[in-house]
Simulated assay, not measured.
Amino acid sequence: MPSQSAIKGRGAQSGAVPQRFGLADRQADGDWRDAMEALDGPPVTLRTTITEEHPRTILSFNQSPDIFFDRSVNAYRGCEHGCVYCFARPTHAYHDLSPGLDFETKLFAKPDAARLLRETLARPKYRPRPIAMGTNTDPYQPIEDRYRITRQLLEVCLDARHPVTITTKSDRVLHDLDLLEAMAEQRLVAVAISVTSLDPVLSGKLEPRAASPAKRLAALGRLAEAGIPTHCSIAPVIPAITDGFIEQIVARAAALGVASCGWIPLRLPHEVAPLFREWLDVHFPDRAGKVMGIVRSIRGGRDNDPDFFSRLRPTGVWAELLRARFRLACKRAGIGKVSFELDCTGFRKPETGNQLRLL
């Protein structure tokens, strides 16, 4: 049983203030807000707010040597899915917001994203390489139903014949199946859907506003059936919480015709570690010590290993056990990790303003 009351519908259990950037608590000044919570108690529900922002650029570049992409685009900041383990949570601290509850309730949308991407791709010196979507926050989180920014970005990439990779935890990706099919015909897209467990109750605690495991698996099957290069990502694998589902997820993905499967161990950078510990104390107090003990054993005695390469490749006995189990599951299911080769050769600069294509 949980050791304390959980915040229903949310992954984080607090709005922990980040310490890295000197974000200070509001100073009490004697007004009614200082006594509000003491008199009325904490708010019953947490409302999600959306702020529209208008950045100057939309494409982010990185030089990380251990990831497969060098550029990405994020239509949103913050993520309503509320996955407690999300490694992107600390990015909210850059804006003096909590990586905890603020990350999943105070969201930002970028309605100019498609225009900015079109302008970037049209620059004379731009050279195409696959753009990764969903690397920081989910491009198909619930507010995509309202804004459709991800769809607009895909329309730009299809028009420019620019390759894209997508990572999501939502079956909303099927809303853009028409675009994905057209892009797949030209080898312009690959889609990964993350499946953490097969237990909807557990998923509701870990990823309270993400699609259920059944919906994610159904989306994987539909994408594979449509001929779209599809990858099942078992991510993250949480020792003593979700690792028991590895073999079943691999088998289910293979049965659906998914071409590729992989796994990623739990990562707990910066504020994610205390948030995850707090989540364990609320939902799994009986095994919290065991979980964190295994996590530290695969991370060199730390809660998190931030170093390139080793951050994605844990070490130790438990890591080798998980790795062996995954390999054996793939062998039994007849599935492996496939490298999808996307085509950059057909790229054509998009039209901008009054400038039309010559060809």
Rank of each mutant, 00 (worst) to 15 (best):
residue 256 L to E: 11
residue 289 G to A: 04
residue 307 D to K: 13
residue 4 Q to M: 12
residue 154 L to P: 14
residue 254 A to G: 06
residue 352 T to M: 01
residue 122 A to R: 04
residue 93 A to N: 06
residue 89 R to Q: 03
residue 273 A to W: 10
residue 320 E to Q: 15
residue 286 D to R: 04
residue 82 G to K: 10
residue 344 C to P: 13
residue 58 I to H: 01
residue 220 L to D: 04
residue 248 Q to M: 03
residue 350 P to L: 02
residue 19 Q to P: 02
residue 137 T to Q: 07
residue 263 W to A: 11
residue 265 P to G: 09
residue 270 H to I: 09
residue 29 D to K: 13
residue 313 R to W: 04
residue 181 E to Q: 06
residue 343 D to V: 14
residue 270 H to F: 14
residue 17 V to H: 09
residue 351 E to T: 09
residue 114 A to K: 06
residue 75 A to Q: 08
residue 313 R to N: 08
residue 292 M to F: 07
residue 92 H to R: 10
residue 41 G to V: 07
residue 176 D to P: 15
residue 186 Q to Y: 06
residue 40 D to Q: 10
residue 276 F to Y: 13
residue 221 G to Q: 10
residue 245 F to Q: 03
residue 313 R to M: 02
residue 87 F to G: 01
residue 347 F to M: 05
residue 230 T to W: 01
residue 37 E to A: 14
residue 175 H to P: 01
residue 145 D to C: 06
residue 243 D to Y: 06
residue 182 A to T: 07
residue 183 M to P: 06
residue 301 G to W: 10
residue 101 L to R: 06
residue 305 D to I: 14
residue 314 P to I: 09
residue 187 R to G: 03
residue 250 V to T: 04
residue 121 L to Q: 07
residue 119 E to T: 08
residue 201 V to R: 12
residue 155 E to V: 00
residue 55 P to C: 01
residue 204 G to T: 11
residue 268 L to E: 06
residue 223 L to P: 12
residue 89 R to I: 09
residue 280 L to M: 15
residue 241 I to C: 03
residue 2 P to R: 05
residue 25 D to S: 12
residue 177 L to W: 06
residue 126 Y to G: 02
residue 142 P to E: 14
residue 158 L to E: 14
residue 165 T to I: 14
residue 342 L to Q: 06
residue 235 A to I: 00
residue 294 I to A: 03
residue 301 G to E: 15
residue 201 V to G: 07
residue 69 F to M: 03
residue 337 K to W: 02
residue 164 V to L: 04
residue 182 A to S: 09
residue 66 D to E: 04
residue 270 H to C: 01
residue 101 L to Q: 10
residue 131 I to L: 14
residue 32 W to T: 02
residue 290 K to D: 11
residue 180 L to H: 07
residue 312 L to A: 01
residue 214 A to R: 15
residue 311 R to G: 00
residue 268 L to V: 01
residue 181 E to Y: 00
residue 146 R to H: 08
residue 90 P to K: 05
residue 338 V to H: 11
residue 295 V to N: 11
residue 291 V to P: 01
residue 49 T to Y: 11
residue 323 R to Y: 05
residue 117 L to Y: 03
residue 60 S to N: 13
residue 215 K to F: 05
residue 11 G to N: 07
residue 359 L to Q: 03
residue 172 R to G: 04
residue 356 L to H: 12
residue 122 A to W: 04
residue 92 H to F: 11
residue 172 R to T: 07
residue 46 L to A: 07
residue 347 F to G: 07
residue 80 E to W: 03
residue 316 G to V: 07
residue 343 D to N: 13
residue 335 I to Y: 00
residue 194 S to A: 09
residue 352 T to S: 05
residue 18 P to T: 08
residue 99 P to F: 13
residue 94 Y to K: 09
residue 332 R to S: 11
residue 73 V to T: 08
residue 165 T to A: 11
residue 121 L to F: 08
residue 131 I to S: 02
residue 188 L to C: 06
residue 90 P to Q: 05
residue 353 G to M: 08
residue 210 A to H: 07
residue 352 T to P: 02
residue 300 G to S: 12
residue 283 H to N: 07
residue 126 Y to V: 02
residue 278 E to Q: 14
residue 220 L to N: 01
residue 81 H to V: 00
residue 4 Q to Y: 09
residue 125 K to P: 00
residue 321 L to D: 13
residue 212 S to K: 15
residue 177 L to Y: 03
residue 43 P to R: 11
residue 14 S to C: 11
residue 59 L to I: 09
residue 5 S to L: 07
residue 17 V to T: 14
residue 7 I to M: 04
residue 298 I to E: 08
residue 145 D to H: 08
residue 142 P to N: 12
residue 112 D to Y: 02
